[in-house]
Structures are given as C-alpha cells and as structure tokens.
Amino acid sequence: MAGIIESSPAHTKFSRYDIRVIIKFSVILGKDASCIHKDLVTVLGENAPSIQTVRKWIKAVSEGQDDMEDEPLPSRAVTACGDANISKVLVSLSDDKRKTCEEISTETSMSRTSVEF
C-alpha cells in the first residue's frame, strides 16, 4: 500500500527520543492515543511503547513539555570519589590504619557511604 511504511529492521531503529518526537508530532496533528499507539505498533512491532507510555507522553506534550529528552537520573555526586576526598581518607588513615569508616567519616566530615567507596 502506498504511504504505509512496512515494518522491517531498517525502520525499527528508533531511539526513545525519536518515538517521543513522533508522539509529539502526532498530537499536533490531532491524533488520539489509540491511533498513535496503533501507528507505532505498525512500524515498530514489539519494540513499540505501551499504550500507557504513549498516554504519558501525550499528557506531557499537552501540558506544554517541549523537551523530549530523558530527565537526568539522581545519582551520587561526581565529587564523592574525587581526588580531594581520597586524599582526606588517606591522611586520616596515615595516623592509624585500623580506623573504622565511622571514625574516618567523623574526622573528615564526609558521609560514611563516601568513605566506604
């Protein structure tokens, strides 16, 4: 059929970002969730997002979200294992190699978790 993209390996290499942009574009065209989901399943097959995911992104677009990138995940501060903290631990251990993590944490004002790493 003319105008329909057949599902093939070449057409299923869409990133999450690509899929979200397609959803955003479809919302602008006035398509509803079931229609958008059906289109995605036609092209992506089992790699298509669930209808719930499609609805979530439709809601985000409808509420004015322009950025289709993933939100950064919360993680440990990059400086937790930095050179400065490693030096603090080494200096603390130079006096007594049998100090506990709790003692080093108190002495260096670092969290116990950071000391353990």
Rank of each mutant, 00 (worst) to 15 (best):
G82Y: 08
C101N: 14
S7C: 05
S111F: 06
K13T: 15
T106I: 07
D67I: 06
C81Y: 13
G30D: 05
A10K: 12
E69H: 12
V91R: 15
F117T: 14
M1N: 09
V115Y: 02
F25N: 15
D66L: 07
E116P: 03
N85S: 10
F25A: 14
A2T: 13
G3E: 08
E103S: 07
V89S: 02
G45D: 07
S7H: 12
S34E: 07
A84W: 09
K24T: 06
A77M: 02
D95R: 15
V54P: 04
M1A: 09
V27N: 14
L93P: 00
R20G: 01
A80L: 04
S92D: 10
T106N: 02
T42V: 09
G3Y: 07
S8N: 12
R76E: 03
K31P: 01
E46H: 08
E69S: 09
K88Y: 05
K97G: 05
L40E: 00
D66R: 11
S75W: 04
L90W: 06
S75D: 11
E71I: 09
E116M: 13
H37Y: 01
E102Q: 11
I4V: 07
G30Y: 02
S105W: 04
E46C: 07
W57A: 01
T100Q: 05
G64D: 11
I22C: 08
E107S: 04
A2R: 10
E6Y: 06
A10N: 13
I19Q: 14
E6T: 08
V91D: 13
Y17F: 09
D66I: 04
S34K: 14
S114Y: 08
V61A: 14
V115P: 00
T79V: 03
V91N: 14
G45F: 02
S26D: 14
T42Q: 15
K31F: 13
T12S: 11
S50C: 07
T79E: 06
F25T: 15
M1F: 14
Q65A: 10
S15R: 14
V89C: 15
R55Q: 13
F14P: 00
